[in-house]
Design a protein around this nucleic acid. Sequence first.
RNA 1: GGUCCAGUGGCGGAAUUGGUAUACGCGCGACACUUAAAAUGUCGUGCCCAAAAGGCAUGUGGGUUCGACUCCCACCUGGACCACCA
Length: 809
Amino acid sequence: MKKYNHKKIEPKWQKKWEKEKIYQALDFGEKPKYYALVEFPYPSGDGLHAGHVRSYTAMDIVARKRRMDGYNVLYPIGWDAFGLPTENYAIKNGLHPKIVTKRNTDTFRRQLKSLGFSFDWEREINTTDPKYYKWTQWIFLQLYKHGLAYKKKMPINWCLSCKVGLANEEVVDGKCERCGGTTEKRDKEQWLLAITKYADKLLEDLKTVDYLEKIKIQQANWIGRSEGLEEYWQVDSMDIKLATFTTWPHTTWGATFMVIAPEHPIIEQLVKGTEYEKGANEFIKNCIQDKIKDRLNVEKKKEGYFIGRYVINNLTGWKMPLYIANFAIMDYGTGIVKCTPTHDERDFEFAKKYNLPLKLVIQPQDSEIKVEDMKEAYIGEGIMINAGQFTGMDTLQARKAVADFIVAQGMGKYVVNFHLRDWIFSRQHYWGEPIPIIFCEKCGEVPVSEKDLPVKLPDVKNYEPTDTGESPLAGIEKWVKTKCPKCGGPARRETDTMPNWAGSSWYFLRYIDPKNDKEFASREKLDYWAPVDWYNGGMEHTTLHLLYSRFWNKFFYDIGVIPNSEPYQKRTSQGMVLGTGGVKMSKSKGNVVNPDAVVANFGADTLRLYEMFMGPFDQAIPWDEKGLNGCYRFLIRMWEVSTRIKRGLNTNKSTNTELTHLLHKTIKKVGEDIETMSFNTAVSSLMIFANECYKLQEIPQNIWEKFLVILAPFAPFIAEELWANIGNKKSIHLESWPKFDSNLIKDKEIEIVVQINGKLRDRIIVAAEASEEEIKKIILASEKVKQWTGGKEPKKIIYVKGKLVSIVI
RNA sequence: GGUCCAGUGGCGGAAUUGGUAUACGCGCGACACUUAAAAUGUCGUGCCCAAAAGGCAUGUGGGUUCGACUCCCACCUGGACCACCA
């Protein structure tokens, strides 16, 4: 047999598997179904990233193992191809985004195929294909019909360099998540999706799914549910009431001032015609400008402006001055905050700066605080003081008692607030799904009729975003002008497009029935395949993508088009693949690993093994070129071992009996490790077995074949080649996962460790079935033990079955 | 600042419910093969001691236990995510 040559064997098998469609998922059938999913890639111009390889290899191993376990497995792939990077690249290079997308997906497809992933290529989807986005638009219409898509004029985050509106989630530290450019607030009519209506369900149903705990925590934090009290306050000598939100109702007894967010519309009424009007407007302008400039710095400095109004404290009757404050957030609660400086750090800082009164209402149990001495707010629990009939009450009880009292007096009501905001769904860009809405002069806002879908993106010469903030589509008069679906009169199309979260919020359902042109997926097939059984992806998508797609899935369930409320039964995340030295891989650092080069030099099997071997799957791991060598050597050794395979060898020979034991241990270990994603230790066990074989001159074929089968999910090419070389006609990937014999795993002789006063002093070998008494007898008679005990009588002897004996002197 | 996670050889990392710390791989060293190198193979490789015996080692300090990488308390360091959320 010739030397191991990955360049020869890998393309050969890749073609054969594809031709014979051995990884095709069949709709329905006798076997139980299993749906394994990975996040479909954004086909960027950089090609496949080492991180894709890590995630896709892991789920490929799971998918292959499930097939061997007798499941009908769906492991699909596609392209999440709408979005800004493609559009930006297209603009820069004067190419149509369609052409760029085609070129990039061709590269990705070739790369993925070269790595031997067992995707069902018959189900490949592309979010930019009109046959696909027809259904994304259809979904929008359903959301619209159910009142979950609405248009609203609102200040949006505007990226100055991308010239596009961004959702709150896409703005990081005041900068655009995509390009890092500066953002500002602009007023614009935007489409929003009412995800907040699903906030409770999205939180509650986390209990029903099997996600990594840290993923659940992230989802819950993002939704950010908090129960509290909305309070209503009379503005002194004005016919205006203000509402605030609090989670600490009992501190209302100590509230001495109030703050309002600069963006709050009611400010206008409060200052109109007063001497404070000019100053207020200036202050507001500065706040907003500061936010644009450097949000991080502003956050540390608290600024306020007194607007000449007072609010009456419901409990104490005090007149509380009202300030516009830069730290008050318009989007949370009511945008107005009741401030108790003695028991809130932020309020304390503000009160000190503007010399506002302090009133202590909580006294700690074990010490006494004096207002005069306060250097910081007291934020702990304690006993209420200066609080009317609640004085002397424990704060844990007072919280509810005061709230009940306020509600009973008609001065407030219980409310639940969420951190989650509605999802801004409009983008002013070309490369996205057009929103299927028409504006008629007579009928107003009219949805495109379902039979007219898809609303195709027009081919245009100029798809650059405009400085006016309008979508480039707005410039294409021919496309914009249309007839009203209701009255037939003149009308104009919506020119905004959807964000690229849209296509990825339901793609896992389209894989189930990718070619259906009557429905987004047939109910029969959905009943069979949904939900996804195991979904793996990056930690960076565990808040937004996961939340958005869960929201859509719940909506589909509510309108009765799918059978399950939660889309993913299980969700896991891989750690990042970092560059050498532990830094993030980036083009500017020049440390990006190109999978093509690795495949050319070492082969796909080596790359797959290496990425699984070099560290725990859920942790970040730096790339190490030398590590590849170790995995490559392992494959060469296996190639060498396979030249020593003999049929019909006596498996009773002692060396072969030992090898059989090791084989069964390895089968058990590798199988369990795949389930817990402990791929690094799985590969380690495979190496141990191969090393044992390497020491032998002859290896029985039946043992070696079983080993090849458990190796196959990890290194599919070499496993297939070696399998064929020893005369097998059918693909190894159609084999069953071998069963291990638990009797064969047990050792005949075991080593017992002897500890004296907790220190390791001796080891003895005994028969596995030796009794406790026998073992103790042997140990107490041993010379070494006698030496250490010095002949003294042991106080205590502890025996741990099959493991150790601990003697206490 | 908050939440979560992690600290084990020269390096990536192993270690069922507390029970042989350092599996596997990299690197390094010696030897073999070679004119030589690469590749490959064999052996060695936590630290201290010439070696044996022994002692010391899982970020630091304490505690529980016959026994702690593992459990508890305090602290130090690093990472991830969120961040004026009332």
